[in-house]
Design a protein around this nucleic acid. Structure first.
Lengths: 354, 354
DNA sequence: CTGTTAGCGCTTTCAC
DNA sequence: GTGAAAGCGCTAACAG
């Protein structure tokens, strides 16, 4: 083996030209004779030359990777296995196939309180990034990402940054549709099992629920809205608590668990029978796929569809074929007809460990 | 906003110290007064300072990411969805939880013939890397990775590089056990449906098969060993072709598809009935899980277990708590007892697209 | 305990 | 068509 590590200067010396000429060839730029170019390419090939990506990003403007970041720790906001696989394949389709590095930052929180989820942007590692998850109401990082000029797209909105680049569904509308539907069926006291407390989608659910109540002139009782975390135990006991009050005749299940068994367990404990003394509207993230067969309606939240369009927008922004930011918001759809079946219990990506 | 982009010089000026002092604080090194350190940290916090990762890797020795690379294009060697999810979670557990970036290079081949699968190593992006798949027999890249000094681990061996850092199972032994078992049951003409033509694990299968035949003094007929690609059509027709010869009374299914339906279809076309006029040994990648209920034996290839140990070795090597290379080889296990059930048809990660 | 100097490998002026 | 020189932001070596 000759030199274990070749720089453009080594190549230049070998070719009898200057480093700048090598740089031009490396970047496929003009201003180099075709014989010189061929000679340089030959040497590069022979010695297995690769440019130092750090030096490149330091001097040039182009960073190394497309980043994927989780704006909340996974134990706070878990990620579903199916969604993750879908996202990964989509990232591959849109970015990876062109030879982009796709870089995941799963747990910057481990690095201490000063580290934040967008460090890949601020450290000049990412040329673009996907913020994959809901944003906290007090998030102050996304605004800095926005200002950095690096193309980005969040899978969620943020009231405090209306210009935020995002692809999401209208959770407020979903909650509004759910609540209005139950009101129209004559319910007066409607409980809601929601999630994402402290995060924007949690707030949006609350707003939609309130809007429907207000329109109908019904009072708001804060005890009827419960936020759950993602533990099974927690969900069952929250349902139990909500339905302990016999005046509560309806429940909106928009906790994002997509798993009916805990809900059923909670109803059982409360001595309730679905369809008899309680009606349920459930949210689903797959078109026409019921989460709960005996629900009186489902609301479909097309987050996959929104994310797909958002990723394409992000890719175009990254390539410069369009300007950012991206702004995709899909409307949810309420449906009352579906074929009888129960979806498999969804798995969390990191259920496997610890 | 003040300066949109702070360097250690800006911090140094603000703090009234030199850049070197800031660098020391940034890297948690000694030789800085505690008041100075606190002041500098305060400024960093206030302005949201992040070091430029490219500059860091250029000057220092530490690269940015843990890399995951596929040594063959995915259309040539597909990856199973279950294995991928498992690998991702494991990477998270071992590297991601410590705050490492995990960077995937899914398709460097798109960048032209000069690009190779380990560019992330040669471009000084990776501080460590996992080579996730079988190595081609004519692979010349892994040796350069080996020489680069970057900790790495391949999920497969390579004859031409015995010192290669790897975690794998002994495919040769698997083929040997399978063939010997069938010979002991009296079979003389044993067909083998293998995969990974041109890749090391394909060769290993062939070697184990030959070794068992030789030991028993049976002749080798090259028509009895067929390599398949991963299309369903291909597998069924290969099985058909192999079993067309009535003298063939046994089949080793080690094509890595883990899907019995194509095998059954091929047997049907050949007019064969399993257990009656043909016996099958099938390979499985899950402990005690049958791929084919009416096989006469299964061989379990503990690749997950090997990969897990290999990843831990790689992590230790990366942290410097042990020396490389890693060398983990698990032995396969033949078993003839299992509970009756059929595994779900495995999904390829990228079946979803194109 | 702290600062000065040099230089990592590349790209960007600007000159010829 | 090509080259010389400067400098990106950081850290290692060496002073003080």
């Amino acid at each position: 083996m000759s030199t274990s590590h070749w720089t453009i200067y080594d190549i230049a010396r070998e070719a009898g030209v200057s480093a700048k000429t090598v740089s031009r060839v490396l970047n496929g730029k003009g201003g180099v004779g075709s014989d010189t170019r061929a000679r340089i390419l030959g040497i590069m090939e022979r010695v297995g030359f690769h440019p130092h990506i750090g030096a490149r990003t330091l001097r040039g403007k182009q960073n190394a990777c497309v980043g994927v970041i989780l704006p909340a720790p996974m134990n706070v906001v878990p990620i579903s296995q199916n969604f993750f696989v879908w996202l990964f394949v989509e990232l591959y389709r849109i970015f990876g196939r062109n030879g982009e590095y796709i870089s995941f930052d799963m747990n910057p929180y481990a690095l201490g309180p000063h580290a934040n989820y967008a460090r890949g942007v601020f450290e000049h590692l990412y040329k673009a990034c996907v913020v994959s998850g809901p944003l906290a109401l007090d998030d102050h990082v996304i605004a800095r990402v926005h200002d950095s000029g690096v193309p980005y797209m969040a899978l969620g909105r943020l009231d405090s940054l209306p210009e935020c680049s995002c692809a999401t569904v209208d959770y407020e509308e979903g909650a509004y549709l759910s609540t209005r539907f139950l009101i129209e069926r004559g319910h007066k006291r409607i409980a809601m099992l929601k999630a994402f407390e402290g995060y924007q989608p949690g707030l949006e659910r609350q707003r939609g629920y309130l809007r429907a109540l207000n329109e109908a002139g019904l009072p708001f009782d804060e005890n009827l809205v419960r936020s759950v975390t993602f533990g099974a135990h927690n969900i069952a006991s929250m349902v139990h608590r909500l339905l302990a009050d016999p005046c509560v005749t309806a429940l909106i299940e928009c906790s994002a668990t997509e798993d009916a068994s805990n809900l059923r367990e909670g109803m059982r404990r409360a001595g309730r029978t679905i369809g008899k003394d309680v009606e349920v509207v459930a949210w689903t993230y797959s078109e026409n796929a019921p989460v709960l067969n005996d629900a009186c309606a489902h609301v479909w939240l097309p987050i996959i569809e929104a994310a797909s369009e958002g990723l394409e927008g992000l890719a175009a922004w990254t390539q410069g074929t369009r300007k950012g930011p991206v702004h995709v918001v899909y409307r949810p759809l309420l449906f009352t007809q579906w074929s009888d079946c129960e979806l498999p219990k969804p798995k969390r990506l990191f259920d496997l460990i610890d």
